[in-house]
Design a protein around this nucleic acid. Structure first.
Lengths: 345, 345
DNA sequence: TTGTAAGCGTTATCAC
DNA sequence: GTGATAACGCTTACAA
């Protein structure tokens, strides 16, 4: 008895060969019709494109990438985006900017949730299996030794830290100038007459820092010779910020309360305002002022009217695409944002 | 004169051949060492794994997928996630659940921002180039004709609408039971004595609906014989909701105001509360009650304490992975969530 | 301008 | 248990 006619994969993609056959040309010509630098007759191109449309042909990017792998200009046009810190509403804003800019620039995104600190290395290796051209880190959990380890492999995808500063040599950092931003904030509250600041920081990270707290503390020490009170929470999470402020300040005598709480970002600032109003039963800014960082959408709501520092995410994302496109090793860059003065400070 | 020694790509990935040579086995054996169903001697496997580690070998998934393309069990283990609606904080919650569940299940995610309605088709084609096994839609902009068009091609990646209902035959919908949820809400406010509801809906979508508004209107007509007042905004955006409520209700005589505003989701509900308090200078819930849907993190904050309906995103994401894994065409499924009663209604 | 041949790095098949 | 050999769908030479 004869065997079944080849276990034909029920449905299979149309290939360039199919199109070539249909159009009566070679596969090579089909390929050409799909590129802009083609040297192909208008007639042939027309014919191919028509056949392709009729067959609903869609080139296989995996094969394309594989075939051109050894070429010096080889690109997969794929970047990995490693993310965590989902309690921070700013992440959504960043995602919008990044997805938009990257797609416009012709880059596809492999989105990877780095589940916890230990998972960063596996996540990186995983992305490597898909031969991404670069890895963008917008999480907070990664460690220096991991960043270093990654670069050992034969090939070196670019490693980019977005919206965060890194001193690591292997890493390109695209971020707001934390020092300048923090100085702006510090000068603003100084000028407004605040003298008892409280600094609320987020998780202590490993290799990608925000230089905000350090800068603020230095400034205050230099200017007033004193160290402001400071605390930190282990996530950029409004609820955690609220709890911490409640626990830290409840029951204090009025003269022992800070006059302004400077928050490392808006996620913390929103929770801080909630705590001041609902737990301490005090007013913002009359009793305690609050200042944030990021200018998340919530910050503009009539309920908060948060004074905060806005990052130029559009410019930063545009620069990111530049970095990806450039063959030369474009380097880290910092950007200046803008203090948005509303009503909480 | 002899030619240059092959334009060697400055850096190139280590291949299975390299490992095979180093380990003194065939490439095939290397391959085997990396699979669990291997029939390989422990000794050989050990040797290979060691060599691989030494060379920092990482298999090329593109080549793997390509090579096994014709096998009937061929999978790229890649899904596209099409997203928009970035003003809605619930998207971040969904992303966290989805990225976590998919990664745990061994699925990689191609994240695509469908920039606008016209972009859905290109986005879908784009994903197709990477030969994704499925496309998950968590946006709001897609049209029925696009969903239909996609299914024409030779091969059929699964099309899944997440957290939204679709009547489209080609689509698997994984969502909360909107009818049951809305009835629960409607009954709750009825029982609480509200009689002048106002329904605030989000954008009128095309093929993936929320049956919430329809259900609510029906219920009210059936129960009281009257049609509640209703309005909609063109995005799930708190600021737009605030503006709309302000414009709709400012200047009304007290007896013309609704006693409860039922919102299609929390993004709208939060803006609604802001409008009631800050624009209308009224109290929630004493003057006007508010009820939401989704239970975003903000809803629990002491500032809002929003009564809302929570979707079982964990279960839904788990089912999604099941659907992806199953070879048989698992079908749409609805889930029951839970009314979270706080203080706004 | 177009076609032919030889890969890219892996997996499937089938001998050994 | 292991190794040759032929795909997979495309791109890059290079020849016509």
């Amino acid at each position: 008895m004869k065997k079944d006619p080849a276990p034909q994969p029920a449905e299979s993609y149309v290939t360039a060969d199919d199109v070539a056959r249909a159009a009566g040309v070679s596969r090579w010509t089909v390929n050409r019709a799909f590129r802009k630098d083609a040297s192909i007759s208008e007639k042939a191109r027309e014919k191919v494109l028509q056949a392709a449309a009729a067959l609903d042909y869609i080139p296989d990017l995996r094969a394309a990438a594989l075939a051109s792998a050894r070429s010096s200009s080889a690109r997969s046009n794929l970047v990995a985006l490693l993310i965590d810190d989902f309690a921070n509403p700013h992440k959504l804003v960043m995602l919008e900017h990044l997805t938009r800019a990257l797609r416009r620039g012709g880059w596809d995104i492999l989105l990877v949730n780095t589940l916890d600190t230990d998972d960063t290395a596996p996540a990186l290796r995983h992305a490597s299996q898909r031969r991404v051209d670069a890895t963008i880190l917008i999480g907070i959990q990664f460690h220096d030794d991991i960043l270093n380890a990654v670069q050992q492999g034969g090939r070196q995808p670019k490693l980019i830290v977005f919206a965060r500063t890194s001193q690591n040599e292997n890493v390109i950092s695209i971020a707001v100038d934390d020092r300048a931003a923090t100085l702006k904030i510090a000068q603003y509250i100084t000028q407004k007459g605040f003298r008892k600041p409280f600094y609320l920081a987020g998780p202590r990270t490993f290799s990608a820092h925000l230089l905000r707290k350090e800068t603020f503390m230095e400034y205050w020490a230099d200017t007033y010779g004193s160290q402001p009170e400071t605390q930190w929470v282990d996530a950029y999470d409004s609820q955690k910020a609220e709890r911490l402020i409640r626990q830290s300040l409840t029951g204090r005598a009025p003269q022992d309360l800070p006059d302004v709480i400077v928050c490392e970002n808006d996620a913390l600032a929103l929770g801080t305002i909630d705590a001041i109003r609902h737990d301490l039963k005090l007013r913002v800014p009359e009793d305690i002022a609050v200042i944030g960082f990021d200018d998340v959408p919530q910050a503009a709501s009539p309920n908060y009217r948060l004074t905060t520092y806005q990052q130029p995410l559009g410019d930063m994302a545009a620069y990111l695409v530049e970095v990806l496109d450039s063959r030369s090793p474009l380097s880290s860059k910092t950007f200046l944002g803008q203090l948005i003065i509303r009503e909480t400070a």
